[in-house]
Design a protein around this nucleic acid. Sequence first.
DNA 1: AGCGTTTGCTCGAAATAGTTAGCGACCCGG
DNA 2: CCGGGTCGCTAACTATTTCGAGCAAACGCT
Lengths: 127, 127
Amino acid sequence: MTTDGKGTEQLQALGEFIRSQRLQARMSLRDLAAKANVSNPYISQIERGLHEPSVRVLRSIAQALGMSADVLLAQLGLHRPDGQGGEEPAAGPSAEAAIAADPALTPEQRDSLLAVYRSFVAANARP
Amino acid sequence: MTTDGKGTEQLQALGEFIRSQRLQARMSLRDLAAKANVSNPYISQIERGLHEPSVRVLRSIAQALGMSADVLLAQLGLHRPDGQGGEEPAAGPSAEAAIAADPALTPEQRDSLLAVYRSFVAANARP
DNA sequence: AGCGTTTGCTCGAAATAGTTAGCGACCCGG
DNA sequence: CCGGGTCGCTAACTATTTCGAGCAAACGCT
């Protein structure tokens, strides 16, 4: 009700993002669950977009993954529900090359960032 | 359990903040409720710290009050649990520009990726 | 082969977020 | 003094999140 319809997409994106981060950190569901003080099945459900976690849980997960909670909240659509800004210059090759060449990142961080980027593009390209 | 005990404070702070903003906008509980598509009693309970609203409701309230949802989330304790207040631009337009300009990403994805990137760089610069 | 552990998942029950209905207190016009 | 209006709040109910217990498949080990 209310304003449903596209929230599901956001949820799935959030879940895939969390999963990609967890795998990148070589953690099992139970590892992450323990580190975040959340039950393992619940993490599983969140990763598959079946539930919308509360801010408390979101914060715990973010902390357990060693990242700011803003990132996860951004996934949930913290900004405008309607992504209409009005300026789309486009043009330019994908960010992959720039990430891979950035000297401010460690190799692991580059890997992680590229993984996230690819997961985004993949999710984006699915019909 | 877990790490509770201070969450109540945050909740009350959030509630008082919302109430003050609502009063400043000369709105009644019912006005705000209607504008945010939430029931009036629930707003009342939130304002008195009896419940922790979900991100969905939080976003609606923020929008109805004409402010960014970040502000309300910050009230909820989004800030660093580690009393470190340093968030600096630092400048390093390496991959940032490429990510921001990538046309294969949705606006939300761009923001997320940028947030991850910045968190990496920040962690990197930390002793 | 077998045993034990770990992986991710499904299925219910408990806790909590959220709603609809309605109450007493207050204000203003008649 | 009575309606009719709004104000914020409480009570009872429904919907959702979150948890604990247990399952099948896949792993290594002797």
